[in-house]
Amino acid sequence: MRRTTYIQAINEALREEMRRDENVFLIGEDVGHYGGLFRVTRNLLDEFGEKRVLDTPISEQAFVGMALGAAMVGMRPIVELMYMDFTLVAADQIFNQIAKYAYMTGGLLNIPLVIRGQQGGGKRYGSQHSQSVESLYAHFPGIKVVAPATPYDAKGLLKSVIRDDNPVAFLEHKMLYFTRGDAPPPDEEHLIPIGKAEVKREGSDLTIATFSYCLLQALEGAATLHEKYGIDCEIVDLRTIEPLDTETIWESVAKTGRLLAVHESYAMCGIGAELVARAYEEVPHLLRAPARRVGMAPVSIPVSRALEEEVLPWKEEIIATVLEMERE
């Protein structure tokens, strides 16, 4: 099978969907002539021209709001936020407007719009360029949230997301951008449905539910746990945060009896808190040990490599938590 980087997979998905539907256009900072800060939209201007790939001023509120306006009449804008942290700059347009528009208009309008960009730590960008915003998006009804971890999933999900008639936040991760993985041949109708989790590693002792870059950390952690301690983790990649595919997770927990949720955003009010709460509400009988969660430490993200690695909930923390749970 052909292999691509995560960036290339997204670039292909954008290109294919722009060819397929002339209502699809890109809008954001440096997406055109420069090709995106991380080169995700590279060469798209050459093929589609300045009317389909729009370089904006640094005015997040305006261009996110404009994407909403265009989506009201059936255009399919894809907004790139250079860093998903800038969600907070455009928060009114995203949460007060885009998320609520279909509802406030009693369904007279629907908003086929994608907000995409990279998030997460690991590259020492510091407090305002390393955050993970999935729980923020997931908190508000009306926006779907997708966070793929592999090039294969990224391409298939982005294509589905662009074709979806609702607003969707498509969360990439800066640590995933240069990872390589299997990719389907270009131009294929490669669509991965929104709202479907996938088991990325089979195991029988404990279920780790995770997504985005934490999936890679969890896979590495699981390999160590297997080799050193003989613990066999099953890893469920959520892929979509909203709507949440709890069915797939509960199927796994039915097998393992243990649930650990792992993500990079804060543990406080995070997706892990949600998953653990739902486990106790919906499937308490499946749990043979207390369900747990691992997330970012409750601090802003520091720049120093030593400090950043300390607070990110990566492999070592996953391993330590699993060992604690196995002792329970």
């Binding site: 256009f25 009317k51 389909r52 509120q61 305006a62 261009f63 996110v64 709001g65 404009m66 994407a67 909403l68 306006g69 265009a70 989506a71 009201m72 009449v73 059936g74 255009m75 804008p77 009114d92 347009q93 007060n96 407007q97 528009y101 406030m104 208009t105 309008l109």
Partner: peptide, 24 residues
């Protein structure tokens, strides 16, 4: 009428986006 808005000023970029759609 594509929407009155409860947030002061928020509707202006929406109109700009509608104008953008017309132009595109």
């Amino acid at each position: 009428l594509m929407g009155a808005n409860g947030i002061v000023g928020a509707q202006a970029p929406h109109a700009a986006g509608l104008a953008l759609a017309s132009w595109l």
